[in-house]
Design a protein around this nucleic acid. Sequence first.
DNA 1: GGTTTTATTGAAACTAATTGCAGTTACAAT
DNA 2: ATTGTAACTGCAATTAGTTTCAATAAAACC
Lengths: 139, 139
Amino acid sequence: MNHSGDISSKLRRRGYRLTPQRMMILEAVEAADGHISADEIYARVCDRYPHLNISTVYRTFELLKELGLVTETDMGDGRVRYHSIRKGHHHHLVCQNCGCIIDLDEAVLLPLKDALFRDYGFDADLKHLAIFGRCSKCR
Amino acid sequence: MNHSGDISSKLRRRGYRLTPQRMMILEAVEAADGHISADEIYARVCDRYPHLNISTVYRTFELLKELGLVTETDMGDGRVRYHSIRKGHHHHLVCQNCGCIIDLDEAVLLPLKDALFRDYGFDADLKHLAIFGRCSKCR
DNA sequence: GGTTTTATTGAAACTAATTGCAGTTACAAT
DNA sequence: ATTGTAACTGCAATTAGTTTCAATAAAACC
């Protein structure tokens, strides 16, 4: 269940370091079931390791994103949320009226991804996406 | 060329008021060629009408968005940009490596919009969208 | 025109996120 | 084991955007 080994080497191979802060933040993201905000991670890690700065949390997420270990989604509620990539790709339909969130299968977006690649040579990063609109109830 | 008449009635019909601030902000958005940030609008309007508050700019954009007069796009550079709807719909491919922006025809997204409606009953608001990824040069 | 109602504004406080910098520390090389 | 150095951290300041609230002013009604 513990992946700190391969993450550690993944970091080191690129010249990054595995610090206690990073370990604890990564652990907390893996432990979280679902999408979690920087604030929430900060609060959870602070319980056990009080001397942590919120900016370190943001910078760690930046790094984890770069390494492809987490994805970032803006659900439109004013705070960005993060999600471990090991828990699978998925997307969201966010209703602008009632705020409900519908999980979306990746397959629906594949035709778009293909079209962008074919027509524009653009490799779209659709790992995590939120599409806004109106759900069936609110239409 | 002047639309303040029909905008004025559009506002009043919904119980909103046409204030000098709103007129000047809307004028500035129409005059801008392309996407413009709240800051830039604020600076431009302030030249002629110095007693304007930045929060009024944000609130006005919120309102104009609601009325469907402008759209909002996050190009990923840390500030949201606005665009008059009268200058046409379009979308963007934003390269996460070199930062270049490719204009995208609306038609490419129609199949996705249709699929979301058909499969999920979700009416996606794809008026303005930025898709991130890697352009042909940076792949 | 004058009065009233209530949407709107400006100012200031606040939140989420980012940045610059000086001091610290992981870890590779000795 | 010690050292050198570049990566990293905490702190404080900054930025984009939002919210609160008292004062103001559109526009509807007389």
